[in-house]
Amino acid sequence: MDPFVVLVLCLSCLLLLSIWRQSSGRGKLPPGPTPLPVIGNILQIDIKDVSKSLTNLSKIYGPVFTLYFGLERMVVLHGYEVVKEALIDLGEEFSGRGHFPLAERANRGFGIVFSNGKRWKEIRRFSLMTLRNFGMGKRSIEDRVQEEARCLVEELRKTKASPCDPTFILGCAPCNVICSIIFQKRFDYKDQQFLNLMEKLNENIRIVSTPWIQICNNFPTIIDYFPGTHNKLLKNLAFMESDILEKVKEHQESMDINNPRDFIDCFLIKMEKEKQNQQSEFTIENLVITAADLLGAGTETTSTTLRYALLLLLKHPEVTAKVQEEIERVIGRNRSPCMQDRGHMPYTDAVVHEVQRYIDLIPTSLPHAVTCDVKFRNYLIPKGTTILTSLTSVLHDNKEFPNPEMFDPRHFLDEGGNFKKSNYFMPFSAGKRICVGEGLARMELFLFLTFILQNFNLKSLIDPKDLDTTPVVNGFASVPPFYQLCFIPV
């Protein structure tokens, strides 16, 4: 058959498939802009700032609406009420993970971030239990974070109060905490193996944040037939998995079943207990991918939040002064901060919360999916439909947070200066898919920041009023603009 005829037939089939998918069930789905064949609503979305586009569309179609990214149908949730109703009140029905062709290629359905069903539930339950087990290797997770915080302070001392970009050092600290939990080992910041790991993690975040990856996920045929950065992403992930597998083999040879040292040991012990169960989800494949998931999810998000926190503290020296006064009063100079201190430091706690609220790190979270046909607000959402959640619409709700575009710790303080919780605080998402490392991340943010401010004054290279804190939105995360500062020993 003539190649031209084959091409026309293929394009015609794709067009018909697109029209059929977009028209099927439209009477039951939430409203939304009319999609174009094949490309859907992509032309109506700013790929570099999806969150802003969703906010604009919500003003037209309401808090629940339908979009098509290519052939992929998505239902968008915008605003606290619908997000709570879906992710919390109907948590089980909305607990699936959205379709990610690239991740599915890399992870093969294993791990904790992109798995679904029984596998996801069992691996998540085990990971939560293990991360909360403060007795691994007779050292609590808090001990590990405190140790890394001391190392971080010593690295900052080496800058000798000269101007520096904190990106690298602030990236090393949370990565080392995860390494300590998974591998029972922290690395020197100049260790070549550690630097290679950091390089792969950072490069992957840069790649994932590009519009090209959005295109690959919406048109998965590209993955096999086109060159691009997605190939580098898959190569980096394969490198990390190979490295983790080597460490798993080392653990198998040296493990003491009665004295687990780290996450890998705990997983291997669980595998041993379930070795007679042919349906067990505790396999080497799941261990390797879960460890890679924890490394990827637990490094860049925390380091970016820390980097943004220091920029905001530079911009608002009056806030920094209040935090340091609270540190001096509650902790002093002669001991290290600990998590028990947080309950006695409402202002510092409010500042950490406000940093996370203000920066809105992951504006749309990772997409969910419905696990069955769901009736939601008089609409029928078919099983498997991807759910896109606007966390921006919750964290920047102007009824809950007056002047949401302003950095103001009073958003989390009552009139008496006591810490005030808010149900709208969802930087880790909400419901059954809430970030498994939430507790660890909150511990790291509090301890790293208090250790830094206990030991250093922060000095800006320019007038604080002239510092730009506008986030650089890159399609996946909101990151701070480049800046330098000086760490002046107190």
Rank of each mutant, 00 (worst) to 15 (best):
Phe267Asp: 01
Val370Met: 05
Gly439Ala: 13
Phe65Gly: 01
Ser127Asn: 05
Asp265Ser: 03
Met129Ile: 12
Asp293Gly: 05
Phe110Asp: 06
Ala350Asn: 00
Glu318Pro: 08
Gln356Asn: 06
Asp360Pro: 10
Asp165His: 03
Ile362Thr: 10
Ile123Ala: 06
Phe425Ser: 06
Gly111Ile: 02
Ile213His: 09
Met271Asn: 03
Ser95Pro: 03
Asn258Trp: 07
Pro260Ser: 06
Thr450Tyr: 00
Cys10Ser: 15
Ser280Gly: 09
Arg144Met: 14
Arg261Leu: 04
Ile141Glu: 06
Leu71Lys: 15
Lys84Cys: 11
Phe263Thr: 01
Asn258Met: 11
Val319Phe: 07
Glu142Arg: 05
Leu102Thr: 08
Met406Arg: 13
Leu201Asn: 07
Glu203Trp: 06
Pro33Thr: 00
Gln340Arg: 13
Asn286Thr: 07
Gln340Cys: 05
Lys190Met: 14
Met136Asp: 13
Thr229Tyr: 13
Ile205Pro: 06
Gly27Asp: 14
Gly416Cys: 14
Val319Met: 08
Asn217Ile: 09
Pro402Ala: 14
Ile331Asp: 01
Lys432Val: 08
Pro409Ile: 06
Val8Tyr: 08
Pro63Arg: 04
Glu318Asn: 15
Pro427Arg: 01
Glu325Val: 10
Ile387His: 00
Ser140Ala: 08
Ile169His: 09
Lys421Trp: 09
Ser393Gly: 04
Asn41Cys: 03
Tyr68Ala: 07
Leu87Asp: 02
Gly431Gln: 02
Asn202His: 15
Ile178Lys: 06
Arg329Asp: 09
Ile488Ser: 15
Ile257Leu: 10
Lys247Tyr: 12
Met406Pro: 01
Pro63Tyr: 00
Leu395Val: 03
Glu92Ile: 07
Ser12Asp: 04
Gly137His: 08
Pro3Gln: 08
Ile269Gly: 09
Ile207Leu: 14
Lys421Val: 10
Ala321Leu: 13
His344Asp: 15
Leu29Trp: 12
Ser393Val: 01
Leu485Gly: 05
Arg206Phe: 06
Pro382Cys: 03
Ala477Val: 15
Asn176Ser: 04
Val83Thr: 06
Cys266Ser: 11
Val351Gly: 00
Pro37Ile: 02
Arg105Asn: 05
Gly431Trp: 01
Ala103Val: 12
Gln276Ile: 12
